[in-house]
Amino acid sequence: MKRNKNDYILNLTRDNTQLLLNKIWELPTERVEEAIVAKLPPQKTVLPRMKPVPKPRPLTKWQQFAKEKGIQKKKKNKLSWDEQLQKWVPLYGFKRAKAEKEKDWLLEVPGNVDPMEDQFAKKIEAKSEKIAKNELQRLRNIAKSTKS
């Protein structure tokens, strides 16, 4: 061993590899695309994972609330009949904005507000605020899910 270290290791490894391959050759084989493959037994060596086991995505705040209250999602039709326009209007998406514009060509000024205030601008702002609030809630839900 001392004098001829490398040859000793070579022979030892050769014998051990031979033993290993003898075991592999004994395994059940099958033919896959012109090649003979052996089916390996399940892995025994326990190796650490790279990242933690994925967790199910936590419920959003609304989903949590709906679950507690037992609120179930109702299915709505995509199209609904609009009496005013006398045509089918989609719930959202293509042709919805146009229909909305056609409907709101005139807006009523409520009695208790400044008559010179632009009601159209007010409506647009209300909508953009609603969008911003929803975006904030969405981000809060994501932050909550990544923290835990």
């Binding site: 391959l21 592999i24 050759w25 084989t29 099958e30 896959v32 090649a35 003979i36 493959v37 052996a38 089916k39 390996l40």
Partner: peptide, 9 residues
């Protein structure tokens, strides 16, 4: 892996 090609060792 589940399978190993015998000639590939």
């Amino acid at each position: 892996v589940e399978n190993v090609r015998l000639q590939g060792i």
